[in-house]
Amino acid sequence: MTLLQIQDLKKHFPVRRSAMEWLKRAPAQSVHAVDGISLDIAAGETLGLVGESGCGKSTVGRSIVRLEDATAGTINLNGAPITTLSRGAFRSLRKDVQFVFQDPFASLNPRMTVAQAVGEPLLNFGMTDPVERRARVAELIERVGLRPDQIDRFPHEFSGGQRQRIGIARALGLNPKLIVLDEPVSALDVSVQAQVINLLIRLQQEFGIAYLFIAHDLAVVEHISDRVAVMYLGKIVEIAEKRSLFARPRHPYTQALLSAVPVADTDVRRDKIILKGDLPSPINPPSGCRFRTRCPIVQSICAKEEPPLRPVSAAVGTHSTACHFAE
């Protein structure tokens, strides 16, 4: 059953013109952070969304919780059109979709105790009895692996991993159907990353929550995702069942990302694909295929025609890619 449906989502940020440019009537420019993406997330599944910094993956997540207002396209949550609702009408839907931030140090108010921070969503949605709220906070805190006697402490008394657990407890409080995880472990030590990911998997099994797991690194996504989407410069270049994507990536960008994942086995020799150059400017994306400026197999057609996202043969489930040369 489809829980979240994103269709042709676009988010353009206007670039401010200087007074000189305005006088010269220079055309208004905009950063095409997200430039027409479509995604589905089924109830209880995890979709990994991967791409390098600046590809627009966080903007997709932020649009789902209305921290950004979409420029075009629609987002439907259980049939409710998130993007066109008024802010007031959307507030009641916030129960169903929650968000976990990347930086566990900045996402907690330094002047609020754990009980206050985790209790805030409960208070906002009508749990006004302090005793009841405290009991619920203690229960949530225990769920995420902290001790209930720690709830009167302040954020600065916790480590990064513990703070991220607090952030997860806050997101869980309203029994959401979907949690957007915006690089939830990239600020943490590798040893702690695994613990937090395992916690997320356990919570998903217990409560049947769907995740949109945003990351810049395929290795992190591999463990937790059911399906994986790869973004490049505001577009999805490949989306597939996890096993199919990791077994046979078709898009040259996905192949390059995969070859960058470190492997523990030293006997395995792999050819690393090193991408040349930087991400092109999202103000003026390249014509045709956006990846062509860095693609190892680029041809003349790539500059003329934009490759659509089309189904290709899959080992399991479905597999789509946006490359002219994928078979």
Partner: peptide, 10 residues
């Protein structure tokens, strides 16, 4: 982010 977090929790 903590202000955005507060907005997200309604």
């Amino acid at each position: 982010p903590f202000v955005e977090a507060a907005i997200v929790v309604g």
